[in-house]
Design a protein around this nucleic acid. Structure first.
Lengths: 182, 182, 182, 182
DNA sequence: CATGAATGAGATTTCATTCAT
DNA sequence: TATGAATGAAATCTCATTCAT
């Protein structure tokens, strides 16, 4: 996976994969039909833990904002600047040529994430924490800055570092109203 | 460019480029040193018009919100689902392996766009249209949903179409306050 | 090697080498980094036996002249008009563009040969067989006709055949004094 | 010619020839049928002055040895380490692949040179300067050291410089008898 | 199961040659 | 006569895939 992330599908050599895995090139073909299947299966394998972690959301104890903030903060910590973040970039990059990968990612991660976000937004609206009702139609808005941060990190961090956590707070202020941080 | 966008750098064959361009393979090498230079130069060439269009912003006549909305709406119309949109995806995909491309894109498009957005946000704050002062620190928040829409379009539109224009309106409501749409 | 000798480095095609070796083109690259390395390594490999044979000089039993004559006669028989002779021509031809090859040839063959010849000449002088003391400074003179014969053979034999063995005898007469062949 | 000498026939690019000649590549084809003809014609053109100079031998005034020494000394000065010397190497290198070149060189230079040398040797024998009658059969012996010097120069000069003039004197001593250089 | 040498299709790149201007 | 852009055949080199051991 590291190799695919670092170089993209087409530019990755099975030679390098085998070397890093510590096996002979031929061995790969005992486990995978060909390079494409290997790529697809690998992406799936790597995505699954993301899903389970996402599913294991803590029960909505405190305020919705605290919940969202905790979740997003965790997401940023675990994804930005890590291999997981580059996985997102990899899927963006190869998605159009690997529809099955994009499909899988949508089904397992995106659609679930969107549903979870929508539920949270609706809870926030019900509790009066969120004033804007239409937000429930576009949970994407909630996560957009996080996604941007991930991409920014791998492309532009050199030129202009971005404090993702702080940006997130500003964004949540927009949604939940500015905190009376005295 | 079409070929690079459709297949990515590594998977694109000079054979196909030559065929589409209606020239012989050798002819390509009269204009470009090699495949890499061709890619870099092409991306630059394609990016330039985007820049000029961005620079040709209309003067801030009406309200800031109207301005932003007009601009973003135009952006969505011209970028989403078009080749230009895929160019963004291409840069996200190949950026890490073509730092010079990422650099150029940052310098010519991103940093200018960020500056322009910041100016607008500050104007909005000055005129009292925007209440949240910190937004000026993260103009990325303003454009995040638009970027997400571009990526969504090329990866997930099949599964879940996204009304980008409407999403944008909801997002602007968040920033400028809900419109009294009566 | 046959291919390189027949056509020179630049005009030799890997296709032909592979065909003659009875392997696929790709196989070559399992053994050599590229065409240049292959050339250099091949030349070295072929030169080595020449060296060992040169080193295995018979002990100086009879007269120095007999020794030289036996050695040179052997050289002519084994080199002139054979692949080994063409190897000399190949090195003369490609030397300037493959300094490492010329260097290797000098170190392994030429300098050793010159030393051996010088030793023989000095022995001849000590025993009174050779009158001209200065010859020890230029052992090249001793072997020059042999080299000329090699080159003559591959370039002009068609027009004017050259009896190398006889020419050699005349040359040795010059050095050791005419034999009282009666 | 410089290009051919520096790189050999196959490795020389018409591009470079055109550039050095200060004309466009197409122009070459107004003067030569193709690369091969150009090579052959160029070699011939360059060889001709060598021939005329060879023919313009001074009349045999002094001793034969003086004549030979003057001639050879002049040859060394004009050929060794110069482009003319490399021309010899070029012909050795490309001869087998360009029989017409080798033929031309033999006819115009070698055979004439051999004849001239033979005449000189016979004169030397008649005058009693040369004792060894058989030398007339192999005029090659007379010029061999000079040829060796030319080749040595372009291949091994770096490792072991060779004083060609001095070597020549030793060689002539061999043929004409040592000089009483008191 | 694992290996790794061998394959050969295919990719990029070069360069002698042509030809409209 | 001269140009130089265009050609396309051919060369080198890569790499996914196979298969005997």
């Amino acid at each position: 996976m590291e190799e695919f992330i670092a170089r993209g599908f087409a530019a990755t050599r099975l030679d390098d994969i085998a070397k890093r895995a510590g096996v002979a090139k031929g061995t790969i073909y005992l486990h995978f039909k060909d390079k494409e299947s290997m790529f697809e299966e690998l992406v799936r394998t790597v995505i699954v833990p993301v899903v389970t972690r996402l599913t294991a959301l803590p029960p909505p104890a405190g305020s919705v904002r605290d919940l969202v903030e905790a979740f997003a903060s965790n997401f940023l910590k675990e994804v930005i600047g890590t291999r997981r973040g580059d996985l997102v970039r990899l899927i963006v990059a190869e998605g159009p040529r690997f529809p099955s990968v994009a499909d899988f990612y949508y089904r397992e991660v995106v659609s679930r994430g969107i549903s979870a976000m929508r539920a949270l937004i609706e809870l926030g609206i019900a509790r009066g924490e969120i004033r804007q009702k239409n937000l429930a139609h576009y949970p994407q808005i909630l996560v957009a800055p996080a996604m941007i941060a991930v991409i920014w990190q791998s492309l532009f961090a050199r030129h202009a570092p971005l404090d993702a956590q702080d940006m997130l707070r500003v964004h949540l202020d927009l949604i939940f109203g500015e905190r009376s941080t005295t």
